[in-house]
Amino acid sequence: MDVFMKGLSKAKEGVVAAAEKTKQGVAEAAGKTKEGVLYVGSKTKEGVVHGVATVAEKTKEQVTNVGGAVVTGVTAVAQKTVEGAGSIAAATGFVKKDQLGKNEEGAPQEGILEDMPVDPDNEAYEMPSEEGYQDYEPEA
Rank of each mutant, 00 (worst) to 15 (best):
A124E: 07
Y39K: 09
G14Y: 15
A140N: 14
K102W: 15
K96M: 13
E137I: 03
A53H: 12
A17R: 12
E126L: 10
D121Q: 15
Y136S: 09
S129F: 09
Y125G: 11
E137K: 03
A29W: 14
D119H: 15
E130Y: 06
V37P: 00
V37G: 01
E13A: 07
A90D: 07
T75Y: 15
G36I: 15
D2R: 02
Q134H: 08
K12N: 01
V71D: 01
N122E: 07
K102D: 04
Y136C: 08
Q79Y: 09
G132A: 09
A91R: 06
P128A: 10
G67E: 02
E131V: 13
K12S: 04
G68Q: 04
A124F: 15
A19C: 05
D119N: 03
V77F: 06
D135E: 09
E137D: 06
E83F: 11
S42W: 11
E123C: 15
V74M: 14
A140D: 10
E13R: 12
A85F: 07
D135G: 13
T64V: 10
S129K: 06
A89G: 04
K102P: 06
K80V: 07
V48I: 11
E28K: 09
L100V: 12
E130S: 04
G7N: 08
T75W: 13
T22P: 00
H50E: 03
V52T: 01
K43D: 00
K60I: 14
Q79R: 13
F4Q: 00
Y125H: 09
E110Y: 07
A11T: 04
V3S: 05
K23Y: 09
E130H: 09
K96A: 12
D2W: 04
K43C: 06
A107I: 06
T64D: 04
T59N: 01
A89W: 11
G41E: 01
E13S: 03
G68P: 03
Q134R: 09
V82P: 02
V49C: 11
T81Y: 14
G31A: 03
M127V: 07
N103Y: 07
K43P: 00
E110N: 08
S42Y: 15
G14P: 01
K34C: 07
T59C: 14
T59V: 10
K58E: 02
S9Q: 11
P117C: 11
A17S: 09
A90P: 02
E28S: 12
P108C: 06
A90G: 00
S129L: 06
G93T: 03
T75A: 15
E114F: 10
K96I: 02
V77L: 09
G68Y: 14
A124L: 07
G101R: 15
G106D: 05
N122Y: 09
A11G: 01
V15N: 00
T54N: 05
T75K: 11
K21R: 14
G31E: 04
E139P: 03
V74R: 01
V37M: 06
G51F: 12
G41F: 13
A90Y: 12
E139H: 13
A107S: 06
A69W: 15
P108M: 09
K34M: 02
D2E: 02
D135S: 07
L113I: 07
Q134P: 12
K6C: 02
L113V: 04
Y39V: 03
T54E: 03
G67H: 12
G86C: 15
Y133S: 04
E13N: 07
S87C: 10
K6H: 04
E110M: 10
E57C: 08
G68F: 00
V55W: 11
P117L: 05
A30G: 01
E105A: 11
G93N: 05
G25P: 00
A18E: 00
M127P: 03
K60L: 04
V66Y: 11
L38G: 01
A56S: 11
L8A: 00
V48M: 12
T72G: 07
A78H: 04
S9D: 02
G25L: 12
T75C: 13
T75D: 02
A91P: 04
E104R: 10
A30R: 02
E105L: 10
K6W: 08
T81H: 02
T75L: 11
M5C: 01
G111Q: 09
G106E: 10
G106L: 05
E35F: 10
G106Q: 05
Q62D: 01
Q79F: 07
L113W: 15
V118N: 14
A53S: 09
A17I: 04
I88Y: 15
L100R: 05
E110Q: 03
E110L: 08
G51R: 06
V3N: 04
G84A: 13
Y136Q: 10
V71S: 03
G68V: 06
A27W: 13
A91F: 14
G51N: 04
V15R: 00
K97Y: 03
V71L: 04
G41A: 15
S9F: 15
A85Y: 06
E83H: 08
F94W: 11
G25K: 13
V95Y: 10
A69I: 05
V118P: 13
K12W: 06
H50M: 13
L8F: 04
D2Q: 15
T81N: 02
V74K: 01
Q24H: 14
K12I: 06
A27K: 11
K60Y: 11
V26Q: 00
G14W: 07
N65L: 07
V63K: 01
G67P: 02
G132E: 14
K80F: 15
V63A: 03
N65R: 09
E104A: 12
S42N: 13
L38R: 15
A11V: 15
V74L: 15
Q62G: 08
G51Q: 09
V55G: 01
K32G: 00
A69R: 12
A107D: 14
K32I: 07
V66R: 04
G25E: 06
H50C: 15
A29R: 04
D115P: 06
G41D: 00
T22E: 00
E57R: 08
K32F: 13
K21W: 13
G7K: 06
K45G: 03
G67L: 13
K97T: 07
Y39M: 06
G47W: 11
V15H: 00
Q79P: 02
A29D: 00
G14Q: 12
E61L: 10
Q24S: 12
V74N: 01
A89N: 03
V52R: 01
V118T: 04
D135Y: 10
G132S: 04
K12Q: 04
T44D: 00
G41W: 06
E123Y: 13
G84V: 14
Q24P: 00
V63G: 01
E131L: 07
E131C: 13
A90C: 12
G73V: 12
L8P: 01
V16Q: 04
K60F: 06
G111V: 01
G7C: 08
P120F: 09
P128E: 07
I88R: 04
G31P: 00
K10N: 03
F4N: 00
K6R: 09
V74W: 11
V48S: 00
V118I: 05
G47V: 12
G93F: 03
A17C: 11
E110S: 06
P138H: 04
K23M: 14
A76P: 01
G67F: 13
M5R: 13
S87H: 14
L113Q: 08
V48W: 15
G25F: 15
Y39R: 07
E126F: 04
S129Q: 06
A27S: 08
M5Y: 02
S129Y: 04
A85S: 04
A30D: 00
